[in-house]
Design a protein around this nucleic acid. Structure first.
Length: 282
DNA sequence: CGATGCCTGCCC
DNA sequence: GGGCAGGCATCG
């Protein structure tokens, strides 16, 4: 389900539902989701209370009051929900259950079982390789345009694929990659090292603005995404190309086409987003 | 690097 | 029945 705006929306909606609650039990029916193994989780999580939830890129960092952090990645279909009564029937795709002292439960549901939770010592985030390598958050304070330009220069592959590289900038997934490229009038196949300085500036600007706008809209519910309270986002109404193959471009009316870029479905306007033949950036 | 695996459900 | 799906780790 989730790219940065959806994960951030989950963070905000989940925190008030579990903050300060003490965990009294944890169980799973699909142990692979718990990377450190169920026994470790039971030993180091049970008895602790949730203090807050942070986020880095698409990772949720559930902070506990015993110096431990649950690093949770929802991958494609993961979602959290909270029930006040442990007798509430389970869904067949519920795979991890945290029971709290007050009898409520946090349940992790994941239709494809792709999501993962890893227990780390708070402050040792760098011990998770993907977190150690993660690029900057796409905010004005953290996403440096010059550094972004330097990274693009090092990649000759399609700009679409580079945007999905979490070491370049954190949090962009398939939907927002297509959207920011449309906003920036860039062809998804344009080699990253051929973007002009002006194009990089526009792209950088659009990444920040688009993800911010998507957060404000509660994320995109293109497929099954809902937040921790079961609410859908509304940003799907603001999408210009994602999942709009065969419909007219909002700018020029040309029909949106879908291609494959690096094994990923990719949507763009062939008129607004022409591929430029260039040897070197201008 | 690009390709494959992880999973299940849905759509053609 | 095959291909595809919001993502990432792990091959070769």
């Amino acid at each position: 389900m989730p790219e940065l705006p959806e994960v951030e929306t989950v963070r905000r909606s989940l925190l008030p539902l579990i903050k300060s609650k003490r965990i009294t039990a944890i169980s799973t029916n699909w142990a692979k989701i718990l990377i450190n193994g169920l026994p470790t989780f039971q030993k180091d999580v049970v008895g602790a209370a949730v203090t807050t939830i942070d986020r880095r890129g698409k990772y949720l960092l559930i902070r506990l009051n015993n110096g431990e952090t649950i690093v949770s990645h929802l991958r494609m279909e993961g979602r959290y929900y909270v029930v006040s009564d442990a007798h509430t029937p389970f869904d067949k795709h519920d795979h991890v259950t945290f029971t709290f002292q007050d009898g409520s439960q946090l349940r992790y549901r994941d239709l494809r079982k792709f999501g993962r939770m890893r227990l780390i010592h708070t402050g040792q985030e760098q011990s998770v390789p993907a977190l150690a390598k993660l690029g900057p958050e796409p905010t004005p304070a953290t996403f440096d345009e010059a550094a972004f330009a330097q990274k693009l220069k090092r990649h000759h592959k399609a700009i679409k694929s580079v945007l999905l590289d979490q070491t370049v900038v954190a949090g962009i997934g398939n939907i927002y990659a297509d959207e920011v490229l449309w906003l920036s009038r860039l062809n998804p196949l344009q080699p990253a090292d051929t973007l002009t300085k002006k194009e990089i500036h526009t792209l950088h600007d659009n990444i920040i603005k688009e993800l911010d706008a998507a957060i404000a809209a509660g994320g995109t519910s293109a497929h099954t995404y809902v937040d921790a309270e079961g609410n859908r986002g509304s940003f799907q109404d603001a999408l210009h190309v994602y999942d709009r193959e065969g419909t007219p471009c909002d700018r020029c009316g040309t029909l949106i086409v879908k291609i494959k870029v690096g094994q990923r479905g990719t949507h763009y306007c062939p008129h607004c987003q022409p591929l430029h033949q260039r040897r070197r950036p201008a």
